[in-house]
């Protein structure tokens, strides 16, 4: 479906886009069980026991979660054998995003070769950066803490996993336009979001935001997704947005997976300023995370 050149107002186009996305059968819908869990979590008095029991009902669902949380990318020192244990350690929102991402794993692999690897590595890097900022200090030696706005490492993993989910939507709903966008991005060396706007009037960051919101993920996940290419526009969760932007940039700079651009742009100066980082900080991150690229094959 091509919505290019239709003389409609932006609001109409967005409405049409969202409606058409909802009509497409292949679009990743939340597993029914996850809707039940979301409902359950909406109650103020929800219990981990009840959510754990709901999650354990679906074996493939449980095994997907356990495979991810026991992977080197999550890095728990001990093996996690039960969903209940995973919920206690990770929190239900983080588990939810892991379930969503692993549910769209196959679609992601088919939609764009390398996107899954890019997303997983971005998630891993984001988690690592958040933990590094929380446990260590910035380049000026200022101690960072949750109180002065540093991100939750597990939540950052979720945002990283989901940040390009909008590309999956474009690849499925607008297959021809998606191919065209990829070709132009490669030939013109222009940012993907600019070309997406030219052709679709919307970009993957906005689509991903809409989807994450629709799936009732928290704002600490959907807002960084919305602004991960426009860090300067984020008025809330600035640190989280900057971490996501840096993780995305570094994953592409390291050449891990593929997200639609062979060429990288200059590092975002807003990100550098918000996180107060320098080359030494980047060196520490790259040295720690890069060797894990050898582990990506465990999800093949």
């Amino acid at each position: 479906m091509n919505i290019q050149n239709k003389p409609k107002r932006r609001g109409d186009i967005l409405y049409e886009l969202v409606s058409s996305i909802k009509r497409i059968k292949d679009i990743p819908t939340l597993p029914k069980i996850l809707s039940k869990i979301s409902e359950e979590m909406g109650n103020d008095d929800y219990s981990i026991k009840d959510i754990g029991e709901l999650m354990s009902l679906d074996i493939s669902f449980s095994s997907r979660i356990l495979r991810m949380v026991n992977s080197p990318f999550y890095g728990f020192p001990q093996r996690i054998y039960s969903i209940k244990h995973a919920i206690v350690l990770l929190g239900a929102n983080v588990l939810k995003s892991i379930v969503i991402s692993t549910s769209v794993f196959t679609i992601m692999k088919e939609a764009m070769e390398g996107l899954w690897e890019h997303s997983l590595f971005c998630a891993f890097t984001a988690k690592y950066i958040a933990a590094m900022l929380l446990n260590g200090s910035d380049k000026k030696g200022n101690k960072m803490s949750k109180e002065n706005g540093i991100a939750d490492a597990d939540m950052m993993f979720s945002a990283g996993l989901m940040h390009d989910i909008g590309k999956v939507i474009t690849a499925i709903a607008f297959r021809d336009d998606f191919k065209k966008i990829m070709i132009i991005a490669e030939e013109d060396k222009r940012p993907l979001t600019d070309i997406e706007h030219d052709i679709l009037n919307i970009s993957h960051d906005q689509l991903g935001y809409m989807l994450a919101k629709e799936w009732n993920l928290p704002s600490s996940i959907y807002l960084p997704i919305k602004y991960h290419h426009n860090v300067n526009l984020a008025s809330e969760f600035k640190t989280e947005t900057a971490i996501l932007n840096l993780s995305d940039f570094l994953t592409r700079a390291m050449g891990i997976g593929y997200s639609g651009n062979t060429y990288i742009e200059k590092i975002n100066t807003d990100t550098v300023n918000i996180l107060n980082i320098d080359l030494n900080f980047i060196k520490n991150i790259v040295e720690e995370v890069y060797p894990f690229k050898n582990e990506l094959s465990i999800f093949d």
């Binding site: 062979t262 590092i267 080359l279």
Partner: peptide, 20 residues
Amino acid sequence: AKRFEDIDGDGFMRGIKEII
């Protein structure tokens, strides 16, 4: 080298390239 070819003139980016 290909990924960084358009921004090789920038000192900070050259530093990142060397780290990688």
